Simulated scan of single mutants.
Amino acid sequence: MHAAATEAQSAALRTLLRSLGQIVLQPNAFTGACLLAAWLLTDGRLACAALMGAVAANVSALLAGYRDADTRAGLHGFNGALAGLAAFSFIADPATAAAVTILAATGTAWLLAPWSRWLRARGLGVCSSPCLIVTWLWLPTMTSATSPASAVPLHVHGAAQWSSGVLASLAQTGFAPGALAGLLVLIGIAAASRRHALGALSGAALASAAHLLLGASTGSFDAGLLGFNGALTALALVDCGVMPMLGGVALAVVLQAAAADFGWPVMTAPFVLATWCMQRLLQRVTRRAIAAEPAQRTKRASPITTPATRAN
């Protein structure tokens, strides 16, 4: 009995940590532990928010009868964790933030099934869209939302400052501040996939550079606010090839820059929209290639006309 209870507790802990790891698209418990360490080292409130949201979403998924395999992989908990992180980032009062976290995380879990079915029918992934939808529903009622930083003239960054800003971008994928948190996130991603870690670094660096060239605030760069959508987009598309990944990162930059001009709190919406656009584009390219294949086979199989054949 004691062994069974211990095993159940261990499985529950792994599920919780995988839910956190899925924030950076890694179904890995160690990745989740690295994100948790990043929050604990920088802001304990964020750690509580992520854990609270993930637990609420996973319990809601269990009550809704969702597939256990998906729950164990962290697919039902990570949007809840993100909803909690958003609540504690935008709401100053801890009690209000905690209440919103539980309600929002539960909402992401109940929204997930019908919304994911609709997206799958169109060949699209869920990403962090449930968190975005739920957060946008309550965010207009709050007055403590952060405003975008004002632009300052672009200046050349040193290697240390550049590295710090890029790592801070990785930290911002989980709403955490600072290069140390970003380094922990990078270690967690690399433990699951070195390819994905390289993609995340490349996406964060390219997106940050592009935003700076477009005149974005250097303060925003130092805080990691310029590169996190690029990092997430690269993570989502790195397995599709270099060109789709670069195209997705470029599109995420354009969308984030456009939203910043209007002062919209888009969070990870540029990542989600850029990923969806590239997924649709890849589907069209694949369909055209499949449609063209029979014609190519027919062309290759057609008999070669020889002089003797023409004479006959």
Rank of each mutant, 00 (worst) to 15 (best):
177 P>W: 04
216 A>I: 14
239 D>C: 06
187 I>L: 14
172 Q>R: 14
133 I>L: 15
191 A>F: 08
194 R>K: 10
207 A>L: 11
203 G>L: 06
216 A>T: 09
172 Q>A: 11
229 N>T: 12
160 A>M: 06
171 A>Q: 01
230 G>V: 15
155 H>K: 01
136 W>A: 14
236 A>C: 10
173 T>R: 10
183 L>Q: 02
170 L>I: 13
172 Q>S: 08
203 G>H: 07
181 A>C: 07
170 L>M: 06
235 L>T: 10
171 A>P: 05
193 S>R: 04
242 V>A: 09
130 P>V: 07
152 V>Y: 01
168 A>E: 00
157 H>Q: 13
175 F>G: 04
180 L>N: 00
197 A>R: 03
221 F>I: 14
132 L>I: 13
186 L>T: 07
227 G>Q: 09
221 F>K: 06
235 L>I: 11
166 V>I: 14
199 G>C: 12
201 L>Q: 04
185 V>N: 00
202 S>G: 06
167 L>F: 02
165 G>S: 12
191 A>T: 06
183 L>E: 01
145 A>K: 01
213 L>K: 08
240 C>S: 15
177 P>I: 02
186 L>P: 03
192 A>I: 07
139 L>S: 08
145 A>C: 04
235 L>F: 09
148 P>W: 07
183 L>I: 00
155 H>L: 12
200 A>W: 11
140 P>C: 03
136 W>L: 13
214 L>V: 06
157 H>G: 07
143 T>P: 02
157 H>M: 13
185 V>C: 04
130 P>M: 05
219 G>I: 10
129 S>G: 06
155 H>Q: 12
238 V>G: 00
193 S>H: 05
182 G>C: 06
127 C>W: 01
126 V>C: 05
127 C>E: 07
198 L>Q: 04
206 L>S: 04
233 T>V: 14
239 D>I: 09
209 A>F: 08
230 G>Y: 10
176 A>M: 07
162 W>G: 09
150 S>R: 12
228 F>Q: 05
174 G>A: 14
224 G>T: 10
198 L>W: 10
213 L>S: 09
158 G>W: 02
148 P>I: 02
158 G>V: 09
202 S>Q: 04
225 L>M: 11
147 S>R: 13
173 T>E: 00
160 A>D: 08
133 I>F: 11
207 A>T: 07
159 A>D: 02
172 Q>F: 10
183 L>W: 01
214 L>H: 01
188 G>F: 01
190 A>I: 11
174 G>E: 00
236 A>P: 01
222 D>S: 14
168 A>G: 02
230 G>E: 08
234 A>E: 11
132 L>H: 02
127 C>G: 05
135 T>W: 09
163 S>T: 12
215 G>N: 08
171 A>M: 00
193 S>I: 06
208 S>M: 11
242 V>L: 14
198 L>M: 10
232 L>Y: 02
156 V>S: 12
204 A>S: 06
239 D>Y: 02
216 A>D: 03
208 S>G: 10
137 L>F: 07
235 L>Q: 12
140 P>R: 08
158 G>K: 01
155 H>V: 15
185 V>A: 06
180 L>D: 02
233 T>M: 09
174 G>Q: 06
161 Q>P: 00
222 D>Y: 03
213 L>T: 11
186 L>M: 07
132 L>G: 04
139 L>V: 08
160 A>Y: 03
176 A>Y: 02
144 S>V: 01
165 G>R: 02
144 S>H: 06
154 L>Q: 02
170 L>T: 12
189 I>E: 03
220 S>L: 09
184 L>R: 08
210 A>T: 10
